[in-house]
């Protein structure tokens, strides 16, 4: 259903290309600058990996990267498990439940700042210690919702009678899950996990509120925030480049696994 390129079609196409320019030029500029010897955008003094070297030598950033990895991986594993089970439970029930849908949709739209203060208030009321573990627990909240949504779209195309077929052929509930259900939905589960991983790696506000005091539970986005807020150092471009490329890779893989991840 392609249009013959009339004047209107040409205008539309030009507009679309401009939108891509608008979306990618700022990111592109960051990436290019990360290789600038001089570090700042004032002058190009030649290509260099100097700032990546500086980044590798910076212990604070290494610590933050490690923290981020711990938070992202733990919260992804927990959220993927719980979100997948939820999606299976909801789809198998086959009875629409508006309250349940709203509850599972809520974490995606509640403003980060509100969820952040709510969790902080809750943790401090019950005198729960703050640190990486509280960040993990908080990240699981929104990650469950995203994993649930991704796996659920996968299940829409899932023929539930294969579960009955497996039982009919003599398998028990556990064997059926391990040998039939999980392999069939696995691309969706993995896609959801990759999405959860990037969201957790990138999340700033909630982590910032529930991290507690002290540098021991600083994550990368918190580091990036303070670098932006309190004096831009050239290393930030290198760091931003690495983080962005990580996200793009994970998202690309996620989309490859399950066509509907980012587009639903």
């Amino acid at each position: 259903m392609a249009d013959a390129p009339g004047a209107g079609g040409l205008f539309l196409r030009a507009h679309l290309y401009l939108v891509y320019v608008f979306l990618y030029v700022p990111i592109g500029v960051l990436i290019v600058l990360s290789f600038n010897e001089a570090g700042l955008p004032t002058a190009w003094t030649g290509a260099s990996l100097k700032w990546y070297g500086a980044l590798a030598a910076n212990e604070t950033i290494q610590r933050a990267a490690l923290n981020t990895a711990i938070v992202a991986i733990s919260s992804t594993i927990i959220a993927t498990t719980l979100g997948t089970l939820l999606a299976l439970g909801v789809e198998m029930r086959q009875k629409p439940n508006a309250a349940l849908d709203a509850l599972l949709f809520a974490p995606m739209i509640i403003p980060d700042i509100v969820l952040a203060i709510a969790l902080l208030a809750f943790f401090s009321l019950i005198k729960f210690s703050l640190g990486l573990h509280s960040i993990v627990m908080s990240h699981v909240v929104f990650n469950i919702a995203f994993v649930f949504a991704v796996v659920r779209t996968r299940l829409r195309h899932f023929d539930f009678s294969v579960i009955e077929a497996s039982v009919d052929l003599g398998a028990g509930a556990f064997t059926t899950f391990r040998r039939v259900t999980l392999p069939a939905i696995f691309p969706g589960v993995l896609a959801g996990a990759l999405l959860a991983l990037t969201l957790s790696v990138d999340e700033f506000i909630i982590a910032f509120f529930v991290a507690g005091a002290g540098p021991s539970s600083q994550t990368l986005p918190m580091q990036i925030y303070s670098m932006i807020r309190f004096g831009v150092t050239p290393e930030i471009n290198a760091l931003a480049t690495i983080v962005i490329l990580f996200s793009f890779t994970a998202l690309f893989l996620s989309q490859r696994l399950n066509r509907e991840v980012l587009t639903s």
């Binding site: 939108v19 891509y20 979306l23 990618y24 700022p26 990111i27 500029v29 960051l30 600058l33 700042l40 955008p41 004032t42 999405l195 990037t198 969201l199 790696v201 990138d202 700033f204 986005p221 990036i224 925030y225 932006i228 831009v232 930030i236 471009n237 931003a240 983080v243 962005i244 996200s247 793009f248 998202l251 690309f252 989309q255 980012l262 587009t263």
Partner: peptide, 28 residues
């Protein structure tokens, strides 16, 4: 569509920071 939606899921702080680099007094 993927190309258009991709930035939405990547790091919000960095995407915002990119505009500081562009709009700055000494900026791009």
């Amino acid at each position: 569509l993927f190309l258009a939606i991709l930035p939405f899921w990547s790091n919000y702080l960095i995407r915002t920071y990119a505009w500081i680099v562009l709009l700055n007094r000494e900026g791009f």
